[in-house]
Amino acid sequence: LTVHVGNVTYHFDNPEQAEEWAKRMAKKYQGQIHVKDGQFRIE
């Protein structure tokens, strides 16, 4: 699973971990989480 934050990409084996990280990053950067094809993108 991949989480994109700006132009930085993080890889996770565990979906719960990826989702948790995406939520934390979205809160930190006050962005929206977009989920597409098993990838999380924070914008």
Rank of each mutant, 00 (worst) to 15 (best):
D37E: 06
I33M: 05
Q17C: 15
Q30D: 09
V5D: 02
K28W: 10
V35G: 03
L1P: 12
E19P: 02
E43F: 12
A18L: 06
G38F: 05
E19L: 15
G31T: 09
A22N: 01
K27Q: 11
E43C: 15
Q39K: 06
Q32Y: 09
L1R: 12
A18I: 04
H11D: 03
F40H: 04
E16P: 02
G38A: 02
N7E: 07
Q30S: 11
N7C: 15
K36S: 12
I42L: 03
K36N: 08
I42H: 05
Q39L: 03
I42M: 01
Y29C: 15
G38W: 03
R24F: 13
Q30N: 14
V3W: 02
T2G: 03
P15N: 07
I42T: 04
V5R: 02
G31S: 08
I33D: 03
E20T: 07
G6F: 13
V35P: 01
N7H: 12
T2I: 10
K23D: 03
Q39Y: 07
T2H: 09
D13N: 12
H11C: 15
A26E: 01
E43K: 06
L1V: 14
K28S: 03
E19I: 14
K23A: 06
L1Q: 08
P15M: 12
Q17R: 10
W21G: 00
E20Y: 12
V5G: 01
H34Y: 13
H4Y: 10
G38K: 03
D13G: 07
N7G: 12
V8Y: 13
T9L: 10
G6H: 12
A18P: 00
V5C: 15
T2W: 09
E20A: 14
Y29M: 07
K23L: 11
K28P: 01
E16H: 14
G6D: 08
V5P: 01
K23M: 11
H34G: 04
R24S: 06
Q32F: 09
Q32R: 11
Q39A: 12
G31Y: 07
T2S: 09
F40M: 12
Q39W: 06
F12W: 01
H4I: 14
H4V: 14
I42S: 04
T9K: 07
Q30F: 08
Y29N: 02
E20G: 05
V8D: 05
R24N: 04
V3C: 07
K23R: 14
W21V: 01
E19Q: 10
P15V: 12
V3H: 01
K27S: 09
N7Y: 11
K23V: 09
G31N: 04
A26I: 04
F12M: 00
E20N: 10
Y29I: 06
W21M: 03
Y10D: 00
V3Y: 02
A22P: 00
V8H: 12
F12P: 00
A18C: 10
M25W: 07
H4L: 14
D37P: 00
V8S: 07
M25R: 01
A26L: 06
Q32K: 12
V35Y: 15
E20H: 07
R24P: 00
K23N: 07
Q30P: 05
V5T: 01
E16W: 11
A18M: 05
T9Q: 06
V5W: 13
I33N: 03
K27W: 08
I42Q: 03
R41E: 10
D13C: 15
Q39E: 14
R41G: 06
G38Y: 03
A26T: 02
D37M: 02
Q17I: 09
Y10M: 03
K28A: 06
A22E: 00
K36Y: 12
Q32D: 06
H34L: 13
G31K: 06
K28V: 08
W21Y: 09
Q32V: 14
H11T: 11
K28Y: 12
F40Q: 04
G31V: 13
F40Y: 13
K36V: 15
G31C: 15
V3Q: 01
T2N: 05
A18Y: 05
K36A: 09
T2K: 07
V8K: 12
T2F: 10
Y10R: 05
D37S: 01
Q32E: 09
R41C: 15
N7R: 13
G31E: 04
V3R: 00
E19M: 14
T2P: 01
Y10P: 00
F40P: 04
V3F: 04
W21E: 01
E43D: 08
F40R: 04
P15G: 06
H11E: 06
L1W: 15
A22W: 06
Q30L: 07
D37G: 05
Q32N: 06
V3L: 04
H11P: 01
G38R: 03
E19H: 12
D13A: 08
L1F: 15
V35K: 05
G6L: 08
T9D: 04
K27Y: 09
Y10L: 04
E43W: 09
H34R: 09
N14M: 06
T2M: 09
E16R: 12
H11V: 11
V5L: 09
R24L: 14
E19D: 04
H4W: 13
R24K: 11
D13S: 12
I42F: 04
G31H: 08
K27P: 02
V8Q: 10
M25T: 02
W21N: 00
Q30T: 05
K27V: 10
Q17G: 05
K23C: 15
H4T: 14
E20K: 13
P15C: 14
I42G: 05
E16D: 10
G6V: 03
G31I: 13
N7P: 08
M25Y: 08
R24W: 11
H34V: 15
K27N: 07
V5I: 12
D13V: 08
Q39R: 04
Q17K: 11
E43M: 09
H11A: 06
Q17T: 10
H4E: 06
H4G: 03
A22T: 02
F12K: 00
E43I: 14
P15S: 12
R24M: 13
E43H: 08
Y10V: 03
P15D: 05
D37K: 03
T2R: 08
M25N: 01
Q32I: 14
V35N: 05
I33L: 11
K36P: 03
I42W: 06
D13R: 08
A26G: 03
M25V: 06
V35E: 05
A22I: 07
I33S: 03
G31M: 14
Y29A: 02
V8E: 07
T9V: 14
D13H: 07
M25Q: 03
Q32H: 13
E43V: 14
G31W: 14
Y29Q: 02
H11L: 09
I33R: 02
Y10S: 00
K23F: 11
F12S: 00
I33W: 07
A26F: 06
Y10H: 03
N14A: 08
Y10Q: 01
G6Q: 05
A26P: 00
R41K: 07
V8R: 14
V35S: 05
L1C: 15
D37V: 02
E20M: 12
R24H: 08
N7W: 11
R24E: 08
E16M: 11
G38T: 01
M25L: 09
F12G: 00
E19R: 12
I33E: 02
R41V: 15
E43L: 13
P15H: 12
P15K: 13
H4D: 02
V3A: 02
A18V: 04
V8I: 12
Q30W: 06
E16T: 11
T2L: 11
K36F: 13
T2Q: 09
H11N: 06
E16K: 13
Q32A: 09
K27G: 05
V5F: 12
G6I: 05
G31R: 04
H34F: 14
E43R: 07
T9M: 10
K23G: 04
H34C: 14
Q39F: 05
W21L: 02
G6S: 05
G31A: 14
G38V: 02
H4F: 10
A22D: 00
W21T: 00
G6N: 12
H34W: 08
A22C: 04
Q39D: 11
R41H: 15
N14G: 04
T2E: 08
I33Y: 05
R41M: 14
M25P: 00
D37L: 05
A26M: 06
H34A: 09
K36Q: 13
T9A: 10
V3G: 01
I33K: 02
Q32C: 14
I33V: 10
D37H: 02
G6M: 09
K23Q: 09
V5S: 02
E20S: 11
Q39T: 06
E20D: 09
G38E: 04
V3M: 02
Y29T: 05
K23E: 05
N14R: 08
V35F: 15
D13E: 10
A26C: 15
K23Y: 11
P15R: 14
M25C: 14
R41A: 07
Y29K: 02
E16Q: 12
T9S: 07
V35D: 03
F40K: 04
G31P: 01
K27I: 13
P15Y: 15
T9W: 06
V35Q: 05
I33P: 03
K28R: 13
K27L: 13
Q30G: 15
K28M: 09
A18K: 02
R24D: 04
K27F: 10
Q39C: 15
K36R: 09
